[in-house]
Amino acid sequence: MKVKEVVEIISGELICCESMNEVEVQMGFASDLMSDVLTLDSENVLLITGLANLQAIRTAEMSDISCIVFARKKKISKEMIELAKESNIALIECSSSVFKAAGLLYAAGINPVY
């Protein structure tokens, strides 16, 4: 599934970056605990989180995660956008809960990591 389809399914807004619209994601993982994200060894993973800070971006960078959905109306800061641009990570704001965003994406074909 392309990032632009993810945005559409969860009625989200792509904050960073336009160039990421065509990137493919296949699996999803939902967590506010970055320690858990760092244990994943899957590829093409999309992260759904309510943790809106620089560590979420850094964790995605180290874990080769190319798309993060910030649920629960969390706002993405300028610093987060700057860091995400350096590593080509798509950042999506979404007003749904983590549970709803995950449910919608699962129903649309995004597979769980485990």
């Binding site: 605990l33 970055m34 320690s35 858990d36 244990t39 800070n53 560590q55």
Partner: peptide, 15 residues
């Protein structure tokens, strides 16, 4: 609050 401190860091480094 930063998303860490779950007591998994050292074990994950080793892994």
């Amino acid at each position: 609050e930063m998303g860490f401190g779950a007591g998994m860091g050292l074990a994950n480094i080793k892994n």
